[in-house]
Design a protein around this nucleic acid. Structure first.
Length: 217
DNA sequence: CACCAGGCAAGTA
DNA sequence: TACTTGCATGGT
């Protein structure tokens, strides 16, 4: 098997699926909330939690930052890990309140490296959640590595080994592609789309995947 | 019924 | 450093 380049993989996925219009959220604030809620959780469950907040008019920074823990936890219950995630959301909103006066425009104007550092200092925000927020809510040029990306690199023999860590995989993408937010946005979205559609453990459809022939050529 | 889903932190050796 | 475990709901 010949190892495909990351550019070739992108081209095949884009040709097959077309633009994905990510993140599936309407505002930067909704994207930030969704990024925490989707941690190790199916997106369909996140949608229910977001709807609970939205239906009550509580999907705003001001409302959520002051919501009692128990109330917030109850509203986001469908997303799972609700006690943990309520704390994580409050930790994150607290940091944005303290450092950026609760102003997401100000937040998004911060420099990439400093913003990433500030996000990672929040308890409950790891590299993937931080990068998702940076890329999709603040449009910073950073690449998101998630479980689907890990499987993709591993399956195509592109990961260093089974033990390739987050930073290594991120470097692989960022060293081989133009560092533009629009490209990183589309590429990650396409990887998730492909993973959901063709790589599920239950009912896999590998042979129909746009990367199948590349993989077996 | 068992397994899985767009992580992360804390504990153990 | 390298595992292991807790956190939890809803779909298949």
């Amino acid at each position: 098997m010949v190892k495909p380049s990351l550019i070739e993989i992108y081209d095949r996925l884009f040709a097959f699926f077309g633009p994905q219009h990510w993140w599936p959220g309407e505002t930067p604030f909704e994207i930030i909330v969704g990024a925490v809620l989707t941690q190790n959780t199916a997106w369909t469950n996140v949608e229910k939690a977001i709807a609970n907040l939205k239906d009550r008019g509580l999907l705003t920074f001001e409302a959520m930052v002051t919501l009692p823990h128990a109330t917030l936890a109850d509203l986001i219950r469908p997303a799972g890990y609700f006690n943990v995630k309520a704390s994580r959301l409050h930790n994150l909103l607290g940091m944005i309140q303290d450092r950026y006066a609760g102003d997401l425009d100000l937040f998004a104007q911060e420099e990439l490296a400093a913003l990433r550092q500030n996000l990672l200092e929040v308890k409950g925000i790891g590299p993937e959640t931080a990068d998702s927020i940076l890329l999709y809510a603040a449009e910073k040029p950073t690449f998101v590595i998630d479980a689907y990306t890990h499987r993709l690199l591993s399956r195509h023999g592109l990961a260093a080994e089974e033990g390739a860590d987050y930073h290594e995989m991120q470097e692989l993408f960022m060293a081989s592609l133009p560092n533009t937010p629009a490209l990183f946005n589309e590429y990650h979205a396409l990887i998730v789309r492909t993973g959901k559609e063709f790589c599920k453990k239950t009912n896999p459809r590998c042979a129909e995947c746009p990367l199948f022939e590349t993989l077996n050529s």
